[in-house]
């Protein structure tokens, strides 16, 4: 082992010297990992975009009807927040996502676990499930509108369906991809069916399930925007439609920023939860 390790280190050293001898590209590469540049670089592009946007409005390259100045958008964002328009509508939207996500998430989990654990359930349900999941949420909207109208039910069903599909698929695949080896270990220790599920299936499927939940939340948020754009009189998506109809692009862009910020928050939150929950995946090297 020690000999092998030595040769690898030696090889590394040779390579490192080689890169060091290379002209400036190598050095710049390593320096870009340093603190100051590491923090500055990501800010350059947004600043450039902002600069271009500002100049476009300062020198009237583009009509403010089509692209309002950054300051105007910022002002609108502040105004809409102060007047409560954003918070109220965001609250309504958040509630819709929450209900739809909970209903769809739980249903998807139950369905996915059932299909993953039982070949019989899978044989009966999977083809139909697959067919239903193939039609995008957008396809179901007109049909559902005729059954349940354009009220709250429609929105929650659409969001729930958008959540259900990725979570159920993740559960099925997570379970089916568990190595047969693990089940043999369970049988060596004489695990009951329940113990197999509790100590092998669930923990082994967690990474896949987490992916499913992340995707589910992502799709839920996407579906919310779709239904609110299409049929709504309140909610963050509606705010956007309203701005568009009045040709107030500052409102549209301000709402886009809010939608992006919420999406970012959700994503980061889940990433954090994942890294906490799946600490065992972090390896030593």
């Amino acid at each position: 082992m020690s000999i092998a390790a030595d040769t690898t280190t030696l090889a590394r050293q040779v390579l490192v010297t080689k890169t060091a001898q290379r002209p400036w590209t190598g050095r710049l590469l390593r320096r870009s990992g340093s603190w100051s540049l590491g923090l500055t670089l990501p800010l350059l592009l947004p600043l450039a975009i902002l600069g271009a946007w500002q100049s476009a409005s300062t020198w009237h390259w583009i009509s403010p009807q089509i692209l309002p100045a950054p300051a105007v958008v910022w002002g609108t964002l502040v105004d809409l927040t102060a007047s409560g328009d954003i918070t109220t509508n965001l609250g309504i939207s958040a509630l819709r996502v929450l209900y739809g996500f909970l209903i769809g998430g739980i249903a998807g989990l139950v369905l996915g676990l059932a299909m993953g654990l039982s070949p019989t359930v899978r044989a009966y349900l999977y083809p139909t499930f697959n067919a239903i999941s193939l039609v995008p949420a957008l396809g179901w909207i007109p049909l559902l509108m005729m059954f349940v109208g354009i009220g709250e039910t429609l929105k929650i069903i659409i969001i729930a369906k958008a959540t259900l599909v990725p979570i159920a698929i993740a559960a099925v695949q997570g379970i089916r991809n568990i190595p047969e080896n693990y089940f043999e270990v369970g049988s060596v220790f004489r695990f009951s069916r329940w113990q197999v599920v509790r100590y092998i299936v669930l923990p082994a499927a967690v990474p896949s399930l987490f992916n499913g939940v992340r995707q589910g939340l992502n799709h839920a948020w996407l579906a919310l925007v779709v239904v609110e754009l299409l049929a709504s009189s309140e909610g963050i998506g509606y705010l956007m439609v309203w701005g568009r109809q009045l040709f107030q692009l500052d409102v549209v862009i301000a709402t886009m920023i809010v939608i992006g910020a919420v999406g970012l928050l959700l994503d980061q939150g889940l990433q954090f939860a994942e890294s906490r929950l799946l600490r065992w995946r972090r390896s030593a090297y």
Binding site: L29, S32, G38, L41, L45, L229, M240, M256
Partner: peptide, 26 residues
């Protein structure tokens, strides 16, 4: 390119968070 990555990826990752259909009005 690591420089390109540091330069563009954070912005791209942020912009990605704007739900696809929210681009429609714009």
């Amino acid at each position: 390119s690591r420089i390109g990555d540091r330069l563009v990826s954070p912005t791209l990752n942020t912009v990605k968070q704007i739900a696809l259909f929210a681009w429609i009005p714009l």
